[in-house]
């Protein structure tokens, strides 16, 4: 893949760089064939997007003037490191009135930073926490 930041001219990655786009276990798109699937050599992990691919899509989005979309891809890149249950647990806590205190959310920002190396996600949760406090959202709804 190019050493420079990617631009819209590098899109779509699957067509421009088919052998350098890989799944989570390092298999390239070229390795994902009907034959390898039938042989049992392909697992769902091989079909999962990597942080690298998301960061590349972020570069392309940014080059097309879509910084907000790029930031979402960057947050998503961090999230690829998190198990599904963890993602859903934090989602649940971010919903209104799921926790009585800001501390619970701030604990999560710590975990995001240190356990998952996810500073952007941590920042998002931090921001939510301070807004929820201002707007009185730490009151349980059921």
């Amino acid at each position: 893949m190019a050493d420079r930041p990617l631009t819209r001219n590098d899109f779509p990655l699957a067509e421009k760089f088919p052998n350098r786009v890989t799944g989570h276990r390092g298999k390239s798109l070229g390795d994902l064939t009907l034959e390898t699937v039938l042989a049992g050599d392909v697992e769902m992990e091989d079909l999962r997007i990597t942080p690298n691919a998301l960061l590349q899509q972020a570069e392309i989005a940014r080059s097309a003037g879509r910084a907000a979309l790029a930031q979402n891809f960057e947050r998503a890149a961090e999230m690829t490191r998190m198990p599904q249950e963890e993602i859903m647990k934090i989602y649940e806590l971010l919903r209104p009135g799921r926790t009585r205190s800001i501390e619970n959310l701030l604990d999560i920002t710590q975990r995001l930073r240190f356990d998952f190396e996810a500073p952007l996600l941590a920042q998002l949760v931090e921001e939510a926490a301070s807004t929820y406090e201002k707007r009185g959202l730490f009151t349980t709804r059921y």
């Binding site: 999962r48 997007i49 998301l54 979402n72 891809f73 947050r75 998503a76 890149a77 961090e78 999230m79 690829t80 998190m82 993602i87 934090i90 989602y91 971010l94 919903r95 209104p96 996600l121 998002l124 949760v125 921001e127 939510a128 807004t131």
Partner: peptide, 13 residues
């Protein structure tokens, strides 16, 4: 924020 979280979650998969 919870929706922004979900938005990232879909992209991450």
């Amino acid at each position: 924020w919870s929706k922004a979280w979900l938005t990232a979650a879909y992209a991450s998969r």
